[in-house]
Every structure is written in structure tokens, then in C-alpha cells.
């Protein structure tokens, strides 16, 4: 078997194992009983601030996308596009509102030291990255190589 295909298998196995481990330990084992209130403030915020920055960054990106759509000031040449765009602006408004609400809920969760306020953003980022590693691994395993035989190993 080619070495790169072995890497493909390893990527799939590793990402699946990490995925299962993450979900099990983050959401099932004692997750409901976790309390962060006993942690010293410095210890708590050392973990919470990086997660907070990532989560707020994602919310800000979503808000910025919605806001940009809401404030587009170009004159489309075709009327049918204008109509469809107006509908897009309604969705953009809801996107902005959703992002603001998520950011507020998240900040409140961090303030009251709720476990889920840290676990959910961390899970979102981790699972997306693992998902991509897994997907590339699958693609490597199933892709057909066009390299000449002498270069495959």
C-alpha cells in the first residue's frame, strides 16, 4: 500500500477516535455536574478568554456578513434580482439578530461560569477541524492516483 494511503487511513482513524473521545468526555462523562465556580479567576479566564475570542470572532464574522448584505448600495440592473435581494435582506437581518443573541448568551454563560458556554464553542471548532481531517483522509483513500508507478512509493 502506498505510504500516502496509509496516512489517509491514519487520518480517518485518528479523527474518528478523537471525535468519539471528545464527544464522550465533553458531553457525557460528568458534563452535567461540572462546576467551574471553584476555579480561581485567573485559572478560569486563562481557559475562557481564548475560547471567548474564537466564539466572539465567529459571531462577529456572521454579524459582519449580515450587516454587509443589509447595507449593500449597488443598483442591480435587473428587477428580478432586486426582488430576490430584498428577500436576502430579511435573512441578513435575522442572521445579524441571531449572531447578537448568540454572542449575548455566550458572554452571559462565561460570566456565570457555565460549563456549556465553553464546551459548545470548543466542540464546534474541534469537530469542524476533525471533520475536515476525516474527509481529506477518506478522499485520499478513495482517490485514484495518476502518478507514474515509480513515484507512487
Amino acid at each position: 500500500m502506498q505510504r500516502s494511503r496509509i496516512w489517509g487511513f491514519l487520518a480517518c482513524i485518528l479523527s474518528l477516535a478523537l471525535f468519539a473521545g471528545f464527544v464522550y468526555y465533553a458531553f457525557f462523562v460528568d458534563a452535567g455536574a461540572v462546576t467551574l465556580c471553584g476555579l480561581a479567576s485567573q485559572t478560569y479566564y486563562a481557559i475562557a478568554v481564548p475560547i471567548m475570542l474564537v466564539a466572539l470572532g465567529l459571531c462577529a464574522t456572521g454579524f459582519w456578513v449580515g450587516w454587509t448584505i443589509l447595507t449593500i448600495k449597488v443598483a442591480p440592473p435587473m428587477p428580478e434580482i432586486v426582488e430576490k435581494k430584498d428577500y436576502a435582506k430579511v435573512k441578513a437581518f435575522f442572521l445579524c439578530a441571531l449572531m447578537l443573541a448568540l454572542a449575548a448568551i455566550f458572554l452571559y454563560g462565561v460570566y456565570i461560569r457555565n460549563y456549556w458556554a465553553l464546551a459548545i464553542p470548543a466542540a464546534a471548532v474541534t469537530l469542524v477541524v476533525l471533520g475536515m481531517v476525516f474527509w481529506v483522509g477518506i478522499a485520499i483513500i478513495t482517490a485514484r492516483s495518476t502518478l507514474p508507478e515509480n513515484k507512487k512509493k
Binding site: G8, A11, W135, V136, A139, I140, A143, S145, T146, L147
Partner: peptide
């Protein structure tokens, strides 16, 4: 799309 990326590129993604 990931499934259409040529094999030679896929193996360099990591």
C-alpha cells in the same frame, strides 16, 4: 470539492 481534488494534491493537504 474535496472528492474531486487530484490525488497528488490530496496527499499534500496535511
Amino acid at each position: 470539492r474535496t472528492r474531486r481534488i487530484p490525488y497528488e494534491k490530496l496527499v499534500r493537504i496535511f
